[in-house]
Write a protein that binds this DNA or RNA. Structure first.
Lengths: 357, 357
DNA sequence: GAACGGGGTTGACACGTTTTAATCGCTCGG
DNA sequence: CCGAGCGATTAAAACGTGTCAACCCCGTTC
C-alpha cells in the first residue's frame, strides 16, 4: 500500500511546473528498453509477455508514475470502459441506492460510471444522452423521463447498449429492469381500504412519469376490487416529487372545501413526508384522522414523526441486476438475449397506515 | 424542440444493424463539400467560418446524426471537458445537494461530471482518483477521506487542478471550499448547554474524518467556555455515519450503566435520526429527557418524529462555488489565485433541542 | 496594373494507444 | 547441421479530431 517505492531515482517523477513532458507508453518503453507495443501488452495481455520483461516494464511504470491515457485507448478501441447512468433525481434516496448498486457492480468489473441527472426534464435528459454519446460510453443505464425512452434509440443505433432502469418495456429489443408499480399501488391502497378508508387521496408527481401513472392504475384497481368507482380517488398532481411539494399538497388538502380524506396514498416517500408534516402541523392525527402510505421505503421513513408505512422496492438489486445485464450485453452483443426483469414490491407496514389488521 | 427536421433525405441517417460505418468529421465534410478542417472549425470556432458554409456544415451534421468523438477530441486537445467529483457518501443528502450544485454549475459551462464515491474508504478513493486520471478529466473536486488529501497531489503534478471540497487546507497551493465545522460543533453544544444540559454525549463517525474531529473540537470548546472539562463529553465513535449506526449508538446509550446523558450531539443528521429512533422506541422523551442536535440539516430532519434541531451548511453554494473556482483555474491556470473559502454554519432551532431559549 | 492584405479554407501532421503482420532468436526433430 | 516451428518482441498503420502554416480568391491601394 505504500507509495514511496520510487527506488533510487528521485529525478524520475515528472516535475510539477514546467518541463517533464507527459509520460506515455513511449517513455515507459524507452526506460524499460522495450518497444511501445510490449508495454501495451503488459497492460492489456500480461500473459503474452515474458515474466522478466513484464517486471522490468512494471518497474518503469511505477518509476515514471505512468497512467494510461484513456482517451487514446478509447479512440483506438472504439469504446471506453465507462458506463453512463442517467437517473431522474439524485435527491431521491431511491436513486442513490440504485446508483450504489450500479457503481459497486461496475467497479468490480473495472468500469467507471458517469452519473448524470435528468431532474425530470426531457431537455436535460437529451443533453445528457448527447454527452454520453460523445464520451463513447460503453453502455448506458437509463431511467427515462416519461415516454421519452425513444431518445435512447439514438444510442442503440450507434451500437451503445442501453438498459432501461425502473422502466418496463414491451420491446423485446432491449433489456429492462423494473419493479411492478401497478402491483405496488394496489398493495398500498388495498391496505388503506382494509383499514376502513373509503375516501382516498392520491398525491402524485407529473402524470408524464410512468411511475406515477402505474401506481395510480394500481390504486384504481384496488378501489375497483373493493367495489368503489374511480371517483373515490381524489387526485393531487404536483409538479415535483419532493417534501416541499408534499407539504404543499397537504396544505391543499387542508384548505379544501371537502372534508379531509380518510387516507392518503403518495407516489413516493418524499411527498408523503411533506404531507405528513403539513397535516401534523394542523393538528391532524395520523393515522387516526388520516391514514398515510408512501412509496419507496427510503431510510428516513422509519424515523418519521409517525413511522411511515410504505412500499419497498429492491433498489440496490435493481442497480446491480441492471448493470450485470448491461455488461453482459457489452461483452457479447450478438449472443446476448434481452431480458425484461420485473421485481415485485413489498408492503412495509408501519404505524401511519393505521390498525395492524 | 422538434427533432424530425431531417429534411428530404431519409436515407441519410445511419442504419441500425450492419453497414453505415461510424460517421465522423470526415463524412460530414464530404457531404457538405468542405474539408474536415472546416468542420472542426464550425464545431470549435464558429465565428471563423462564413455563415453560408457554416449552415451547410450544420445541415450535414444534422442529416448524418454526427456526434463528435470526445476521445479523439480529448486526445488531441490534451484534456477533456469533464470534471471529476469524488464524494464521501452518496447516501448522505448533504453530498447529493453538493453534487446538485456542482452538476448544475458545470452543466451551464458545458462540462460533464463524473461522479464517484469513496464510501469512506481510502482504497476506493485511490482507485477512483486513478480512474479520473486515466480519463484525463479537466479538473477534480475532491472530498478527501481523512488526511489522504495528499493522494490528490498525483493529479496536481499531472497538471489537473484540484479543489478540496468540504475540507479546509492550510496549503496556499490549492483552492478549498469548506464550512467551519469547529464553529458548527460549538454552536450545537452551546445550545445544549444553554438548555441546561451538563452531561453531553457526542455520537460520531470514524475519528479519521476531519468533519468529525472538527465538530468534536467545537463541542469541547463550548464545554470549556461553560467551565466544563472534556470529561463532560461522553463519546461514541461509530464505524459509519448512517441511521443504522445511529440506532446502534442509541441502544448503546440505553444499555450503558450510567444514566442517560442530558443531551446528545450527533456528527450528522443521519446518526441523529437513528439515535432518535432508538431513544423514542425505548420510551425516552425528546427533548424532555434527552435533548438532541444533529448536523447538516438535511431535508428529512424537519419531518422527523421530533423535528430535529440541526446545524445547517450552505450545501448547494458549496458545490457551486467550488466548481466556479475549479473552472476558473482550468481556464487560466497561471493567472489563477488560489482561494480558501470558508462558510459559516447556522443553527436551525427545532423542537429536539428543547426549550426555545 | 501590380503589389498588398485579409478573410476563408485547406492539407497535413500530431495526439497516445492498440493491433496486426512481420521479424528475431531459439529449440528440437530429422 | 539445417530447417521448421514457436514464443517473444517489434515496427508500422490505424483511430477521429484539433491546429497551424500555407494557400487562394477578391477587393483595395498606390
Amino acid at each position: 500500500m505504500r507509495t514511496d517505492e520510487t527506488g533510487g531515482d528521485p529525478a524520475a517523477r515528472p516535475r510539477a511546473g514546467t518541463g517533464a513532458r507527459t509520460v506515455g507508453i513511449k517513455q515507459v518503453a524507452e526506460r524499460a528498453g522495450v518497444s511501445p507495443g510490449t508495454v501495451s501488452n503488459v497492460l492489456n495481455r500480461p500473459e503474452r509477455v515474458a515474466a522478466a520483461t513484464r517486471e522490468r516494464v512494471e518497474r518503469a511504470i511505477r518509476d515514471l508514475g505512468f497512467v494510461r491515457n484513456g482517451s487514446a485507448s478509447t479512440l483506438r478501441a472504439g469504446h471506453s470502459s465507462t458506463l453512463g447512468l442517467l437517473v431522474l433525481d439524485l435527491a431521491n434516496p431511491f436513486f442513490t441506492d440504485v446508483a450504489r448498486g450500479v457503481e459497486e457492480t461496475a467497479g468490480e468489473r473495472g468500469y467507471a460510471v458517469i452519473l448524470a441527472t435528468s431532474a425530470d426534464s426531457a431537455e436535460r435528459q437529451a443533453r445528457n444522452i448527447r454527452v454520453l454519446a460523445e464520451q463513447r460510453v460503453r453502455g448506458v443505464l437509463l431511467t427515462p423521463v416519461g415516454d421519452e425512452a425513444e431518445r435512447a434509440d439514438m444510442l442503440r443505433e450507434r451500437g451503445v447498449p442501453v438498459v432501461l432502469l425502473d422502466h418496463p418495456t414491451p420491446r423485446a429489443s432491449q433489456c429492462s429492469v423494473s419493479v411492478d408499480d401497478v402491483a405496488g399501488g394496489e398493495l398500498a391502497v388495498r391496505r388503506l381500504l382494509d383499514g376502513g378508508a373509503r375516501d382516498v387521496a392520491y398525491v402524485t408527481g407529473p402524470a408524464s412519469l410512468r411511475q406515477c401513472a402505474d401506481r395510480r392504475r394500481g390504486a384504481l384497481r384496488a378501489l375497483r376490487a373493493a367495489g368503489l368507482g374511480r371517483d373515490a380517488l381524489r387526485e393531487l398532481t404536483m409538479p415535483a416529487m419532493n417534501p416541499r411539494a408534499g407539504h404543499e399538497a397537504g396544505q391543499r388538502l387542508l384548505a379544501d372545501d371537502r372534508p379531509l380524506p380518510d387516507a392518503v396514498f403518495c407516489a413516493n416517500d418524499l411527498l408523503a413526508l411533506g404531507v405528513m408534516r403539513a397535516l401534523l402541523a394542523a393538528g391532524v392525527k395520523i393515522p387516526q384522522d388520516v391514514a398515510l402510505i408512501g412509496y419507496d421505503d427510503i431510510e428516513f421513513s422509519a424515523a418519521a414523526a409517525v413511522p411511515l408505512c410504505s412500499v419497498r422496492q429492491p433498489t440496490y438489486q435493481l442497480g446491480r441486476i441492471a448493470t450485470e445485464l448491461l455488461l453482459e450485453e457489452c461483452d457479447d452483443p450478438s449472443g446476448h438475449a434481452h431480458q425484461q426483469v420485473m421485481f415485485q414490491p413489498e408492503l412495509v407496514v408501519r404505524e401511519s397506515s393505521g390498525g395492524s389488521a
